[in-house]
Amino acid sequence: MSRLSLKNSRLLRTSALALSALLLIAGCAGSPSADPSSSASGSSSESVSPTPTATPTPTPSYKPASEDGPAENVPVPEMPAVAKEHTEEGLKAFIEYYFELINYTNESQSTDAIAPSTNLKCASCSRIVRNVNNYKADGMWMVGGEYSIDLIYADLSNRPLGYKYANIKFHQSASTDYKGPQEVDEEFELSSDIRWQMSLKPVENGWIVVDMGAGK
């Protein structure tokens, strides 16, 4: 056996003896084993509780007016994109939308939606707002009475102040006014073949009703 091999053999034997001694000392001086119950308790206390899932708020459902009470949660009409165009098609679409606003105003007894599209000097428009406010103040409401347009003739020719005009034909369904639950105040029959003329002003986001009333 060569000298190099002999030297390596001695070194390995000496290292093995030293390692055995260290392991023996470590075994004698080691810390006592941990209490299993203590370990389990620590893990339990550090566990994170699951985050509760938020319950979505339900959307209030629409309740139409009836003999028992006024309407609730009436959906607000949305203006179609075409109604913002200053064209014949846009004018007709806006008038249809405006009559939806009138129906919404009567049913919901709220004038917030119709106000931005109405000129304050419009007499017929002001009468609608005034009637709605009076009904609400007196604790009254209407069942029925929806407006439906039958015909629109639009006139986009140049007029003073840039106004545009339209002749419309519409009808209003039969209605009943209530002054309390199941307490009738007045009843109205179907009104048909109603003819009005409307004056409208083109604005940036559509139109504004300047005036409307019985056509000549």
Rank of each mutant, 00 (worst) to 15 (best):
L4W: 00
L4M: 00
L4K: 08
K7Q: 00
R10H: 00
L12Q: 01
T14W: 07
L17K: 13
L17Y: 12
L19D: 01
S20Y: 08
A21R: 07
L24S: 12
I25Y: 00
I25M: 05
A29P: 03
G30I: 00
S33R: 14
D35E: 09
D35K: 07
D35L: 07
P36Q: 08
S44Q: 10
S45R: 06
P52E: 04
T53S: 14
P56R: 02
K63T: 15
A71M: 03
A71R: 04
E72K: 14
V76Y: 07
K84V: 01
H86R: 06
E88S: 12
E88I: 06
F99Q: 06
I102G: 01
N103W: 03
N103H: 03
T105Y: 04
S110Q: 15
T111S: 06
S117H: 15
K121R: 12
C122Y: 06
S124A: 09
S126E: 11
N134T: 15
M142S: 11
S148G: 10
I152G: 00
A154S: 08
A154D: 06
D155Y: 09
L161F: 00
N167A: 15
I168F: 00
K169A: 07
F170P: 04
S175H: 07
E183N: 10
D185Q: 12
S192R: 10
L200G: 01
K201V: 01
W207K: 02
V209W: 01
V209A: 02
M212N: 12
A214C: 13
A214R: 14
